[in-house]
Design a binder for these strands. Structure first.
Length: 111
DNA sequence: GCGTTGACGAGGA
DNA sequence: GTCCTCGCCAACG
């Protein structure tokens, strides 16, 4: 297996999220086998700024479908705008019909 | 090597 | 149904 850090594993999964789809931190953590470290997924996204990677972090939200990390973007409205551009309706900083747009890496990547 | 940090999740009241 | 508390675990300083 690749000797990549937990961070990079998160980045790889997030980068695989198809357009118009979203997932939760816990789902990614669970896919990586560390479902207990769902916080690490979000923490990894925080470090994305330090990297030159192109990570669609706007497609990653918490289990409530809430745009918890929108303040970590260039602009708090950027995240909602990105999702809206992909056909995902966001209102009150939360994704409408979140379940319909949910993308589970454990299923999509089909281990 | 240790303590702190976190864009979370689940359970309990 | 909402609000609060605990746990989780890897990276950073």
């Amino acid at each position: 297996m690749d000797k990549i850090s937990f961070y990079e594993q998160v980045y790889q999964v997030v980068a695989l999220i198809p357009k118009g789809k979203v997932t939760s931190y816990g789902a990614i953590a669970a896919y990586l086998g560390t479902k207990g470290s769902s916080r690490m997924v979000g923490y990894a996204m925080n470090q994305v700024h330090s990297l030159s990677l192109n990570i669609p972090a706007h497609r990653v939200v918490n289990r409530n479908g809430l745009l918890t990390g929108k303040f970590h973007f260039e602009s708090p409205t950027k995240m909602q705008d990105q999702l809206a551009s992909e056909g995902i309706i966001v209102e009150e900083d939360k994704i409408i019909n979140f379940k319909a747009h949910f993308w589970d890496p454990a299923i999509a990547l089909a281990l």
